Simulated scan of single mutants.
Amino acid sequence: MNATFKTLPVCLFLLLSARVQAAPPVAPKPGPTRSVSAPSDAERYARRCQSQTAQRIARPQGTMLWGTKRSWDPEKPTDERTSVLVSVALDAPRQADTGVTALRFDGGRLWAVPAPEAGATASDVVGTVLQGTSSDGKPVEVAICGAEPAADDPGRVFYRIEAWNAVAREWENPCVALDRSPAPRAFAVGGVWDASGAHTDAPGRLTFACENGAISKCIQWGYAPWASRDGQSLAGLHQACTRLARADYCGNGRSHTRQDTTIDIYDRLGVLERATEVTREWDPAKGSFEAAWAPDGATCLSRTRDGRALEGILQECPGRFQTEAADTREAGGETCTVRRSDVKPGAALLRNLSYGPPKAEPARVQ
């Protein structure tokens, strides 16, 4: 493991390596004159991958799971557990190169089926349009507009994607843009995540996980679900990481964190180890134990990341945590305030430290 991954104080939204920054957006190109009726398939596919819509800079509070927009209508109230795109089907593409009948997912990459005679490359899938689905079950077409190997690991590929916005009748990047990632890309990840944050293996379907979402971030932090360490799959650690990244204590898809919150993650396999040195982002002396994590949420909780009272978490998922558990100490020596009675102390895959809530300033003597 590269030394840069051994300790990782993590800025939940914006701590991305400069090597992974998105390229500057392509200058907008004017689209064809629209008619009242919907464009034909041929017209729609001809307009893909042309950056017709200016990027919308969003600064959502709390972390995202998929990293995608919640709705194509920015004025419509939405729940944090909704998305314009949650999965795509790899068979029967709506548009593809001549002879390509499907795509195949393997090792974090997409491959054309059948493979070109000249040898397969990451760019073979560029231009393909796949059939996707939003969180409300509605169909949405997704175009693959680019494929770029990650700078720190050429085996991982970032995809530039666009989805057909049926409201604006344009192709649009479904990923939420942030200041440091104005044109976010996506990883292809096997399986599907539902609104509760649970992951299901779904043969023939995958998720495009945008750079600013927890699924993608956990891969960049070292927990690629298709990888293994010392013969053990990292899939469980990746899923636990998606819960940790969003402070999803109850395992119901609800986040309890704020943008730019810095944390320190460590695991029992040694992919990430507890930080011991002071950096610009993290001071170990100021951090304290927050929670231990399994794929379905927190197994024990010392305090909340955003400072809210523990009583609120207990009310959100009644019966999940016990305040009078016989053993309140974790295997690593950390002390829990509440713990799940149905999970053994050593079952947690990940643990994290975070800074406690800001202390109130002492009253001034008049």
Results as ranks from 00 to 15, higher is better:
residue 60 P to N: 04
residue 233 S to I: 06
residue 204 G to M: 05
residue 242 T to H: 01
residue 60 P to W: 01
residue 330 E to F: 02
residue 154 P to I: 12
residue 135 S to A: 13
residue 277 E to N: 05
residue 127 G to T: 08
residue 175 C to T: 04
residue 319 G to K: 06
residue 220 Q to G: 12
residue 39 P to V: 05
residue 187 F to G: 04
residue 3 A to G: 07
residue 161 I to V: 15
residue 229 R to I: 07
residue 282 W to E: 00
residue 45 Y to D: 14
residue 190 G to K: 12
residue 253 G to C: 14
residue 133 T to G: 08
residue 47 R to W: 07
residue 332 G to I: 00
residue 186 A to E: 07
residue 197 G to H: 01
residue 91 D to R: 05
residue 105 F to T: 01
residue 214 A to Y: 08
residue 226 W to T: 15
residue 350 L to H: 06
residue 21 Q to Y: 13
residue 285 A to V: 08
residue 159 Y to P: 08
residue 202 A to S: 09
residue 133 T to D: 09
residue 8 L to R: 08
residue 52 Q to G: 06
residue 81 R to Q: 15
residue 342 D to K: 07
residue 236 G to R: 04
residue 287 G to K: 13
residue 342 D to S: 10
residue 58 A to I: 12
residue 53 T to N: 11
residue 121 T to I: 10
residue 159 Y to H: 11
residue 216 S to G: 06
residue 326 A to M: 04
residue 129 V to Q: 01
residue 26 V to W: 11
residue 123 S to I: 07
residue 69 K to C: 06
residue 286 K to L: 13
residue 89 A to I: 13
residue 213 G to A: 05
residue 22 A to T: 14
residue 343 V to R: 13
residue 177 A to E: 12
residue 177 A to S: 14
residue 297 G to Q: 14
residue 317 C to L: 00
residue 327 D to Y: 03
residue 106 D to M: 11
residue 217 K to V: 09
residue 148 E to M: 04
residue 42 A to F: 03
residue 229 R to Y: 07
residue 288 S to F: 00
residue 223 Y to V: 05
residue 260 D to F: 06
residue 283 D to W: 08
residue 330 E to Q: 04
residue 21 Q to P: 05
residue 310 L to F: 11
residue 126 V to H: 04
residue 300 C to W: 01
residue 194 D to G: 11
residue 75 E to Y: 09
residue 297 G to A: 13
residue 358 P to V: 10
residue 278 V to D: 04
residue 275 A to S: 15
residue 79 D to V: 10
residue 152 D to W: 12
residue 106 D to A: 14
residue 197 G to S: 02
residue 361 E to Y: 04
residue 224 A to P: 00
residue 334 E to A: 08
residue 286 K to S: 14
residue 68 T to E: 11
residue 254 R to V: 11
residue 266 Y to L: 03
residue 227 A to E: 15
residue 224 A to E: 02
